[in-house]
Design a binder for these strands. Structure first.
Lengths: 147, 147
DNA sequence: GAGAAATTTTACGTTGACGTAAACTTTGGC
DNA sequence: GCCAAAGTTTACGTCAACGTAAAATTTCTC
């Protein structure tokens, strides 16, 4: 029995949630909608999260709060990477090279799409920042006039 | 009667909403929560929006989708600028200079706060972008291997 | 001035992303 | 082996930000 299936070093839902800054309910919700399945369960049914799971939570949160994706979109985005990870196991070396290419291409396409969204946000943020800076300067000069 | 109060060149809710890419209901909702009042109303009660109103809608949408503020926060942010604009009218020149300073300081503070949020987002987006780029490179090299 | 199209108010419905309560079971320290 | 703490499922509640439907005006076009 390996480390993961024995539960050594794994986090139960309370600690996992606390460390990620979310509620246990949120993690159960993510699981319910197929966004994040814990690495395994104890015999009694308690969820156990790995460090990799923790990273995924962070990832989810960033896609949500930073890029404004809803959880359905995030699921689609992560699915691409999941497929890719699954591919490493389906690694009967060279067996089905066409499929490998297909999956890699899709993951790559998803990645590019996310890139575009990020770039778009960056551009809009830059515009906004320059407007804010300009405003800040005007405020400062008007305040100076008041003396 | 001037251009605005006569309704010349003003937009009714349907066109205003269409141009802004939102629904009429959204504009009525913004009005209901004190976020955006149309410049005036026709005798029959129809809302009429000016170009300035249109700009405000865009502004609201950016604060919402780009920065993730909720409409209550956006109202607070815009209130600072409104107070400042109102100050131009209450311009009995020099009458109450303390109040002018006070309003300017608050508007400035709000502006700075928004700036911080933008800067924070920019930093996180940059991090994310570099991760995405890195991933993109890895995908490309793995695809190359397949030949 | 008549009829179609757009708008009005009023009010209930919806959706996403959880929160919360209840009743029950596991887990971990003593 | 016991018991408090943490976890489980089930199910209803909530909140923001609108969507949608209905019935009554208003506005625009002819």
């Amino acid at each position: 029995m390996d480390e993961v299936s024995s539960g050594g070093g794994l986090l139960r839902i309370g600690k996992a949630a606390e460390r990620a800054g979310v509620s246990p309910r949120t993690l159960r919700w993510y699981e319910e909608i197929g966004l994040l399945a814990p690495a395994n369960y104890s015999a009694g049914g308690a969820r156990r999260y790995t460090e990799e799971d923790m990273g995924r939570i962070v990832h989810i949160r960033e896609l949500q709060s930073l890029l404004g994706f809803d959880l359905g979109e995030i699921r689609d985005i992560l699915r691409g990477e999941d497929d890719l990870a699954g591919l490493r196991h389906e690694y009967r070396s060279g067996a089905d090279q066409g499929r490998r290419r297909e999956i890699l291409l899709e993951a790559s396409a998803i990645n590019d799409k996310v890139c575009e969204v990020v770039a778009g946000k960056q551009a809009r943020l830059e515009t906004m920042m320059s407007e804010l800076t300009e405003k800040s300067v005007r405020y400062a000069s008007r305040l100076k006039e008041l003396d």
